[in-house]
């Protein structure tokens, strides 16, 4: 069966006074994802449409946007999440500089991730986490050197969903704070004090108001809100210890 959606897509290019919406109706197989529908609009109806995408399976984190106001990775959002024949509104992420249409600039976000020195490769010593399984993760002894990618895709959905990120322009944001927690747990050669100092300020760890929107938006099991709450509990102590060690 095929699925018919009307995409109401946010349009804006440099020089435009205000953004506006274009409507495109597409028919895709019911197994398709929202990203397939957007790509089809580009391929068949409007080649000027600009959107970000690369991996199509929630690994690169590039395609983040908002569908009906909710942060989504359209590559893993089935079209059947929306009624056949309905209209869905597609907007770019909030709190990012807009480049064009659905494309945002990842510069400031990436700077925050750099500030906490986030390394995307971690040890897999805790084994392979699998949310769906109750079995303990198993890693054979010889796998003590095993590595794997961090869960965070650097997609920015959490930042877009965060109510603070909109009003506090210099706020590090949930992704960077969650990343900092990972770096403190497993420093991978990075100086923990530098990580702590990057977040221990009014635009960092102490800015969050605990709205938990970030964790609701995260497509990759990072749960930034929980990481922030943990950091607030043990972070100052880690900072203190690191400071003493440096002396």
């Amino acid at each position: 069966m095929s699925w018919r959606l009307t995409l109401k897509i946010h349009r804006w290019q440099p020089g435009d006074r205000a953004p506006y919406y274009d409507h495109f109706t597409v028919e895709v197989p019911e197994e398709a994802y929202v990203l397939d529908a957007i790509e089809k609009v580009w391929a068949e109806q409007d080649r000027s449409l600009a959107f970000r995408h690369a991996c199509h399976h929630a690994s690169c984190g590039s395609c983040g946007l908002r569908v009906n106001g909710r942060e989504k990775l359209p590559c893993i959002t089935p079209v059947t999440d929306y009624p056949n024949g309905s209209t869905i509104q597609i907007d770019p992420l909030r709190h990012f500089p807009l480049v064009r249409d659905l494309v945002v600039d990842m510069g400031p976000f990436s700077q925050a991730m750099e500030a906490v020195r986030f390394s995307i490769i971690r040890h897999a010593s805790e084994g392979v986490p699998d949310a769906r399984s109750s079995e303990p993760p198993i890693l054979p002894e010889e796998d003590h050197e095993a590595t794997r990618f961090e869960n965070c895709l650097e997609c920015g959905l959490c930042v877009s969903a965060c109510p603070i990120a909109g009003s506090a322009l210099n706020y590090l944001g949930p992704a960077a704070l969650a990343a900092a927690e990972r770096m403190l747990v497993e420093p991978r050669g990075v100086d923990p004090l530098a990580v702590w100092e990057a977040i221990d300020h009014d635009d960092g760890l102490w800015r969050c108001h605990g709205a938990f929107e970030c964790s609701a938006a995260c497509p990759s099991e990072v749960d930034p809100a929980a990481a922030i709450m943990r950091l607030r509990r043990y972070g100052p102590k880690v900072g203190q210890v690191a400071r003493q060690q440096r002396r």
Partner: peptide
């Protein structure tokens, strides 16, 4: 013409 890796490589 698009995002980095938006052709064959990304997928």
């Amino acid at each position: 013409r698009g995002e980095v890796g938006s052709g064959t490589t990304g997928r």
